[in-house]
Amino acid sequence: MKKIYLLLLLISIVACKEDLKIIDKPIEFGELREQLTLEYLESHYGIVQDAPIITPKMVVIHWTAIPTLEKSFGAFVNTKIGSHRTKINTASQLNVSSQFLVDLDGTIYRLMPENFMARHVIGLNHCAIGIENVGGTESTPLTEKQLEANIWLVTYLKKKYDIDYVIGHYEYTNFENHDLWLEKDNGYRTLKTDPRKDFLMKIKSATKELGFKEVPVKE
């Protein structure tokens, strides 16, 4: 039944791929955000450079745990992080962000240039493109339309960049001993469960032929 479901899902994606597109909905990315991004790259990863450019090697799937597009967008749009984000605002004043945001109806929004660094995953922002999905709560679960959009978007990104991994946010600490892991602050970690294993496994199964590498096993 699982194989039949995935086959039907892929057929659905192929059938509607002409309808799927990326809509630009930019967050603030002026001089201050660029400065804070460059400071983040240096302080957390030891990377010193003149522009906030990354070389994407992975795609990280998230949920916002916020029920609407506009409120989710509102969490990312400002340059500086809010004072209420007490678990992470001491690590940097740079606001959290993501290159993409997918609405409940599957509409894909690009929030910033794909190869600009976004703050969405500890230790790996320097090489990771983030896909945030609106919702993820018990009352607003992720949808089939979002699943289709994520599969389409992961495929698009793999064809455009030399992407090695597609992971869920909850898998990020598996990379702590990997060459891609650069976090200098050993005390800077948060516990994540997004986007839940069942949602992620459907994405991985549907994109298996793209040849992504297996996520390292956490020691």
Rank of each mutant, 00 (worst) to 15 (best):
T140F: 12
C16L: 10
L191N: 13
K2C: 03
T137F: 11
L41S: 10
L20I: 15
Y5N: 10
N125G: 11
L6C: 08
S205M: 11
N95T: 07
H44N: 14
I4F: 09
K25L: 14
N133D: 06
H62G: 02
M201D: 13
E31R: 12
L153G: 10
L9T: 07
L7E: 12
L101S: 01
W152F: 15
E18N: 10
K197P: 07
V48Y: 06
L124A: 08
M112L: 14
A149D: 03
L111S: 11
V215Q: 04
K25E: 06
A128I: 05
I13C: 03
I81F: 04
G211C: 10
G106K: 07
F29S: 13
L7W: 08
G82N: 14
V14E: 12
E31V: 07
K158I: 10
H62A: 03
L191A: 12
S92D: 14
V77W: 02
A65W: 10
S43G: 05
V154K: 00
R85M: 14
G130Y: 00
K158A: 14
F175I: 15
K21C: 12
T55Y: 04
Q99N: 13
L182G: 04
I4Y: 05
L20Y: 15
V14D: 08
K184F: 02
L191T: 15
D105F: 08
K158D: 09
I81H: 02
M1P: 01
K159R: 15
T107A: 07
I23K: 11
E144W: 05
K87R: 15
E209K: 15
G106F: 09
I203A: 00
M1Y: 09
L101E: 01
G106Q: 08
L8M: 13
Y109M: 02
L38P: 03
K57T: 09
N115T: 15
L210T: 11
E132P: 01
V60W: 00
F76N: 09
S12R: 11
I203N: 00
E214Q: 14
S98G: 15
R33W: 01
L157Y: 01
D162H: 15
A75I: 01
Y109G: 07
N150H: 03
F116A: 15
K3L: 03
L200Y: 01
L41E: 08
Q93P: 11
E28I: 06
K80M: 12
F73R: 04
L6S: 07
L182A: 09
K21A: 10
Q146G: 06
T137V: 10
D103E: 15
L7Q: 12
H62S: 03
E18H: 07
Y40L: 10
L38S: 09
L7C: 08
S72K: 01
G30E: 05
L200N: 00
I61H: 02
P141C: 06
K160P: 07
V96A: 11
H62K: 05
M112Y: 06
S12P: 00
A65Q: 09
L32Y: 06
L153Q: 04
T137P: 00
N89H: 13
